[in-house]
Amino acid sequence: MATSAVVDDYLKSIYHHTEWQDERITPSQLATELGLAPSSVTEMVQKLATQGLVSHRRYGPISLTIEGQQRAAAIVRRHRLIETWLVREYGYTWDEVHDEAEVLEHALSDRLLARIDERLGHPRFDPHGDAIPAADGSTERVPFVRLRDAAPGHAGRILRVDDRDPDLLRDLDQLGVDVGREVRVVDGATLRLDEHSVTLPPGTADAVWLTA
């Protein structure tokens, strides 16, 4: 189980890197993402390549093979369904679910996961706006712009908020900045919500995606 969980964590990180941008992840970026020594990551990537899960040339970026993509999508589906389940059924807030899902994604049976999916009405997105892959691995992706790149005056709906910083999620929740909210960009540090403007916490411009 430990070995399987480690492989899943690598594949999930590689998968996640290209969901909201097109540049493939490098070994050094993957090491930073996982909090591991570059030498350890290099060794593991070589093992994943031998297993046919990733494609990688020395010093080059890493990409998932078809088999790796399917396995990554399956574990991402588990993680995001569990996050959605915890929020809807157990009253968790969106800043609390990531770590819980990290544990549960390796523990739930396929049968229970299917029951959860059915009970939730087959949701397409998790509480942070990330797409939940379908059982066949397919996902939806609509045109988007990162807040830091949005021009002043841009109007759109919040598609996604990065879930890596629980403190930022809590701050944004208090301001009413959440997935699905219609907003207008004043600048990288200010959004217009309905009839009032809110000053955003540091780091928000890098953590929020809007409809293009």
Rank of each mutant, 00 (worst) to 15 (best):
S109H: 07
S109E: 10
D110V: 02
D110A: 09
R111T: 14
R111W: 06
R111D: 08
L112D: 10
L113R: 01
L113A: 01
L113E: 02
R115T: 06
R115A: 11
R115W: 04
I116E: 01
I116A: 05
I116V: 15
I116Y: 06
I116Q: 08
D117E: 10
D117T: 01
E118D: 13
E118A: 11
E118P: 00
E118S: 07
R119L: 06
L120N: 00
L120A: 03
L120D: 02
G121A: 09
H122G: 06
H122V: 02
P123F: 04
R124L: 12
R124M: 10
R124Y: 12
R124S: 14
F125T: 11
F125H: 11
D126S: 04
D126A: 03
D126Y: 01
D126E: 00
D126T: 01
P127H: 06
P127Y: 03
P127Q: 02
P127E: 04
H128K: 06
H128S: 07
H128F: 06
G129F: 00
G129E: 04
D130V: 11
D130H: 13
A131S: 13
A131P: 13
A131I: 09
A131Q: 03
I132E: 01
I132F: 00
P133K: 07
P133Y: 03
P133T: 08
A134F: 03
A134I: 04
A135M: 10
A135R: 13
A135S: 13
A135T: 15
D136V: 08
D136I: 03
G137W: 06
G137P: 08
G137V: 11
G137C: 08
G137Y: 05
G137T: 12
G137F: 07
S138Q: 10
T139A: 10
T139N: 03
T139S: 08
T139D: 01
T139H: 06
E140Q: 10
R141T: 13
R141V: 11
V142W: 15
V142N: 12
P143T: 13
P143Y: 09
P143K: 14
P143W: 09
P143R: 14
F144S: 14
F144K: 13
F144E: 15
V145F: 00
V145A: 02
R146L: 14
R146I: 15
R146C: 11
R146D: 09
L147A: 06
L147C: 03
L147G: 04
R148D: 14
R148Y: 15
A150R: 04
A150G: 05
A150V: 09
A150E: 04
A150T: 12
A151V: 14
A151N: 13
P152L: 13
P152W: 13
G153Y: 12
G153L: 08
G153H: 11
H154G: 00
H154S: 07
H154E: 02
